[in-house]
Design a protein around this nucleic acid. Structure first.
Lengths: 200, 200
DNA sequence: GTCTATACCTAGATAGAC
DNA sequence: GTCTATCTAGGTATAGAC
């Protein structure tokens, strides 16, 4: 099955490219990283690299998707308590402070992807929707338990937390001395949440 | 004084360019607005326009500064009550929903300006610092009055509100059905604030 | 199916004429 | 102060070798 073999090889190469790109961005940051630059790192020509991706924007979107996969490993270890979802959320944000290059990529791309014509538009829409659909039930449960104010819609608080995380990443890039996870934890605490993550 | 005259004319032209650019962006949106495009609208060549600005990024940064000037007119009408500061803040955000082009410009530029080499870097740093220095005292006063929880540092809550507004603008561009000001007002209310702005 | 080489296009920057 | 012309960088498209 020559076809099957070649196909599998293509998939593998794609994965290899994404993994390498992720490493390069973590190591050297994303300051206007060009396709040629990444192509060099992978040992391909620029056109060779774009054989696997339809555009620069798609390539970088896939890099983020790859990052999500890697991060999900640590995130999915959420316990039965709804509050533990926030623990994972905060752990992720704490982790972000160790990979400024990826934060740059994320901030840059999420801004560009607001354009419906951008190759990453759907990815970001789905990402927000997915996080919201995870958060909302946990929030509702915590509200029922009296650990979060019921005046906020669960979907609304989800949106707020996502927006807050995004905005703080931007501010953190401008001034790395701020504590992104600390700020979010403090807000959750001020809203009445009690959990390991907000405990100081 | 020919020099003086020429100087004044240059200033005036600069203002004219910024005003026109603002109008164009409001009217046609900022979807990869190019320098040439704006130059056409002003009746100049691309090089002619860049005679007044050192780069594209500086030009667009100045457009935002111009927007701030215009907006400040409505914002500075804050009353003596510290809570009225939030009224102005929310009014501004409500107004943003009427000018998607400017929100696009803001989101795009604030992401790009996280790079210290970006011409708008200092502008955004100062902008955040300025808003923070306005918010913090008002927050402290509201905390003393028991209208906001004291567990949050005033500077911290300032950062949170700025980040939230920025993040919501991004989400709103992705999905204009969300109510940016409504979400922020709901959060302030959940934190205990009572004011005209949060009243429904 | 994988990849190189090359040519192309857009767009910002810059030099120099007027 | 403003233009034309040119330079450069970078993303994209295509032809064709393997």
């Amino acid at each position: 099955m020559a076809q099957r073999g070649a196909y599998a090889k293509g998939i593998a190469k794609r994965e290899e490219i994404l993994t390498t790109a992720l490493e390069v961005i973590v190591r050297e940051g994303f300051s206007g990283a060009s396709v040629r630059q990444l192509a060099d790192a992978v040992g391909l020509s620029q056109a060779g690299l774009l054989h696997y991706f339809s555009s620069k924007d798609e390539l970088f979107t896939e890099v983020l998707r790859k990052r999500d996969e890697v991060d999900a490993v640590g995130m999915d270890a959420a316990g039965p308590d709804p509050a533990s979802l926030f623990d994972g959320f905060l752990a992720l944000i704490r982790h972000n402070a160790d990979v400024p290059g990826l934060v740059q990529l994320y901030v840059h791309l999420s801004a560009a992807a607001t354009d419906p014509a951008h190759d990453g538009h759907e990815y970001f829409r789905e990402r927000v929707a997915q996080i919201r659909s995870r958060f909302a039930p946990a929030i509702a449960e915590l509200q029922a338990r009296g650990d979060l104010p019921s005046s906020l819609e669960p979907e609304q608080l989800s949106r707020i937390l996502i927006a807050l995380a995004d905005g703080l990443q931007e501010q953190w890039l401008m001034d790395p001395s701020i504590d992104m996870a600390g700020d979010i934890a403090a807000l959750l605490q001020a809203l009445g949440l009690r959990s390991p993550a907000t405990a100081r």
